[in-house]
Amino acid sequence: MKRAVPEINAGSMADIAFLLLIFFLVTTTMDVDTGITRKLPPPIEKDVDDVPVKDRNVLKILVNSHDMLMVDGKHSDVRLLKEKTKDFMALHPDNPDYPELTTRYIEELGRDFPASKGVISLKNDRGTSYNMYIQVQNELARAFNEMKNEKSVELFGAKYRQLVDEKKIKAINRIVPVRISEAEPEDIGGGL
């Protein structure tokens, strides 16, 4: 009754698999996309006047077309920027040289927190190189990340990156908001 079924030759199976493998090797990339995420402000309406912000509440960062940095009217260096930002955004009660303080109610924790009214204002020239711009953005991000870490360790005893609870992450983000304002573009000069 039973008839012997001839075996299928599987010797070329490896070749077929190799072909597929090589196809995938060629057409795909392995790099993971990483970068600094930022949120752009919505476009301003023409008839709205600039909101007046007190001078002491703003840390002005200017980058010119020769990639030179000016922080609050003084020549500076990228390596000093992180410390300067942290110092500026830290809470200094009753010091007129630093930003004003306010309290912010954090729902997640159910109590008020003191907060700085400080804003980082970043302005660059059209001739600034992208490398320099990213370096400045990176230093600012580092300053804010370190502040978030410190706050997180103080409140929850864990680093910000290690927080799992969505509520805690939200609370930290509200206590330490990333306040970087990019000026409307204009030519500062000295560029192309």
Partner: peptide
């Protein structure tokens, strides 16, 4: 109205 941006950088 594309507000979320990411500056692609290497780590």
């Amino acid at each position: 109205g594309a507000f979320k941006i990411n500056y692609s950088t290497r780590k």
